[in-house]
Amino acid sequence: MDVRQPIATNGGDWLTKFGELWKKQLTQINESFGSSVQEVRMPPEYPTDVPIIYVQKESIIDVLKFLKEQPGFEYGFLADITATDEEIDPRFEVVYNLFSHQHKCRIRLKVRVSEGEEVPTATSIWLGANWAEREVFDMYGVKFKGHPDLRRILMDSRWVGHPLRKDYPLRGYQLFTDSEPVDPTLLE
């Protein structure tokens, strides 16, 4: 069986609904950011539910702002920021899932980033990106340039390593018996 078939049929509802819109949007993105767009993966050619746009990390903020504000796009809702560990170079992919309240459709942006490299922060566009980026930093060690408060979020501040990296063991427990004290500098 062709492994690429299933998503295409299952996402067929969205594909018939938004296929034309996505195509129009992608040509417009290509016109505006031609050199920054590394790769575009469209359903049904690639097994994904929505188009994936790979963007160079330097221009991710411009693309996000464009997608948020440009008429015909209006992806004003940041559904999620997360990352994946691909175990090749560039090692990480930072994933932005966006949703448009006007068109009721979704799109996905990805940024490839090597270990130790920084991605510009999206907190200037969505204040809510703050914690999501902190979580990416906590779990993968991807740093965000210009982030107002890049600390660990789920793990303890004394934690060593980044748990969602593929080379971090499943049972890599680290035990802390005392809680973190109040940090008065955060209250200034």
Partner: peptide, 25 residues
């Protein structure tokens, strides 16, 4: 699970619950 990736969302009681799953087969 065949190779591919999908973000599945649903209106949970509190808001948008999403599962973003990447499968490598």
């Amino acid at each position: 699970v065949p190779e591919g990736e999908a973000y599945t969302q649903f209106e949970a009681a509190n808001g948008e619950l999403g599962f973003y799953i990447v499968s490598k087969g």
